[in-house]
Amino acid sequence: MLFLISLIVGTGGYVVLENYTLIDALYMAVITFATVGYTEVNALSVNGKIFTLIYIIFNLGIFAYTVSVLSTFLFEGELGRVFKNYISNREVNKLKDHVIVCGFGRNGAMACEELHKAEKEFVIIEKDTSVIETVPQDKKYSFVSGNATLDEILLEAGLERASTVITALPSDADNVFITLTAKEINPRINVIAKASETNSEKKLYRAGASHVVMPDRLGGIHMANLITKPYVIEFLELLNGVGDAKLELEEVSYAKLKNEFHNKTIKELDIRNKSGVTILAFKDDLEGFIFNPQSDKKIEKGDVLIILGTKKNLHNFNNHFIKN
């Protein structure tokens, strides 16, 4: 745009001051702009010489600005950031049934860490570019830079194709707004929202949130339970991967099991002896959650097993029971 403006100004100046034809004026503007040193069309008047001096200085300023912009792109990593954003946008456009994480603060970053461990595809919306730049390259997170409260940014993150939105912005009002927008654009989407204030919880549920998490409340309960139920908390920390004997919880649906294990009882599957994992609970379409299910409980279509074990136990379970 600056180059185009410069040519228009130069051409117009020579037409007005020197009465040049349009083609002669354009020729003078180009040779002056390019500083090639060709001979003028005609000898310049005093006003023409003053205009040419100012015009040359103006063009030198454009040249200096152009060099500084190119230097920023080449030497300060701007080109790399643009290319990274381009690649990230291409990857986002391929995603389906993914998770959109709004806000990469403390809670958002922890959510992304867990999703990354579980190999779940996700996209992060973050408006602070300095925060995006602090993420290590080996993480290979997909980012959309922008304000998550804007419809176009949510759509850029693939809201229409996503399965879940985690909104973890500092402002409860923003989280309510994102929940409303997400449910309006994609009514089937699952929304998990963060709340700081107690009265925001009901508003988020009314807006359509499936789950509302209050980190401050959970933190206070956790600290109190460290006093009242220390061993329970120690066990729960094992489930969260804290400590030497790390345990993991997994959910296994009927559809994931190999065909030969369909419509079999827990006793017939003999899961504990074959893999080492323990069945903690059973999700039945009719009865809901059943804790510590009986051995004669049959696994049928739509049912889900909640299992517990070490990483090795779960690996054995997957090899033996889960479809490839």
Results as ranks from 00 to 15, higher is better:
90 R>S: 06
266 I>K: 08
10 G>S: 05
309 G>S: 05
160 E>K: 13
275 S>P: 04
132 I>V: 15
188 R>A: 07
8 I>C: 08
100 I>K: 02
58 F>W: 11
109 A>V: 07
278 T>V: 12
137 Q>M: 08
249 L>D: 05
8 I>Y: 09
271 I>S: 10
143 F>H: 01
263 N>T: 04
72 T>Q: 11
303 D>S: 11
30 V>S: 08
220 G>Q: 04
263 N>V: 06
131 V>H: 07
276 G>N: 08
105 G>V: 08
255 A>N: 05
24 D>A: 09
109 A>F: 07
58 F>Q: 10
266 I>N: 07
92 V>K: 02
158 G>W: 03
320 H>V: 09
45 S>V: 03
124 I>G: 01
41 V>I: 13
196 S>V: 10
285 D>L: 12
217 R>Y: 10
110 M>Y: 11
224 A>Y: 14
68 S>W: 02
274 K>D: 07
4 L>I: 13
308 L>K: 13
51 F>A: 06
199 N>A: 06
219 G>S: 14
63 F>Q: 12
58 F>G: 01
24 D>N: 15
157 A>S: 08
191 V>M: 07
49 K>M: 11
65 Y>N: 14
107 N>S: 13
104 F>P: 02
244 D>H: 06
279 I>N: 02
188 R>I: 03
278 T>H: 13
234 E>L: 04
113 E>H: 13
98 H>K: 02
320 H>S: 12
201 E>T: 11
155 L>R: 12
102 C>K: 01
72 T>N: 11
135 V>T: 04
110 M>A: 15
229 K>I: 00
97 D>I: 03
303 D>H: 15
10 G>D: 05
22 L>F: 12
92 V>A: 10
74 L>V: 11
313 N>W: 03
162 A>C: 11
